[in-house]
């Protein structure tokens, strides 16, 4: 059971979230080549270690989050909102 700290809601169980895949993959520009679009959908690295990925707090505040997680140990290093241009949380410190 992963414990993920939602910047808005605090530390919650993994089952409140749904996994959203690799956050290091960038969506190509509208006019990018078909190869780029193909890679965007089908080509993934499978890194062992630190990895950035999306999680959706789907049974919570509905925020999409970027989580940095070690794929070997499941240690979570950070959890951030996906975009700086959306409203930002007032993060409380020291919550469990």
């Amino acid at each position: 059971m992963l414990r993920i700290e939602c910047p808005w809601c605090g530390v919650r169980n993994e089952d409140e979230f749904s996994y959203g895949g690799d956050a290091t993959v960038e969506r190509p520009a509208d006019d990018a080549s078909q190869d780029d679009w193909y890679d965007y959908v089908y080509t993934r690295a499978n890194p062992a270690g630190r990895h950035r990925e999306y999680w959706h707090h789907i049974n919570g505040c509905r925020a999409w989050l970027t989580v940095e997680r070690d794929t070997m140990t499941h240690e979570i290093f950070s959890t951030e909102p996906t975009s700086a241009s959306l409203p930002q949380p007032q993060r409380k410190t020291g919550s469990l």
């Binding site: 969506r27 999306y54 959706h56 789907i58 509905r62 925020a63 909102p81 975009s83 241009s85 959306l86």
Partner: peptide, 14 residues
């Protein structure tokens, strides 16, 4: 809804 929220928050926050 989850799909729309993703594009709204992740890809097109502008």
């Amino acid at each position: 809804l989850a799909h729309m929220e993703r594009y709204h928050q992740v890809e097109w926050p502008e």
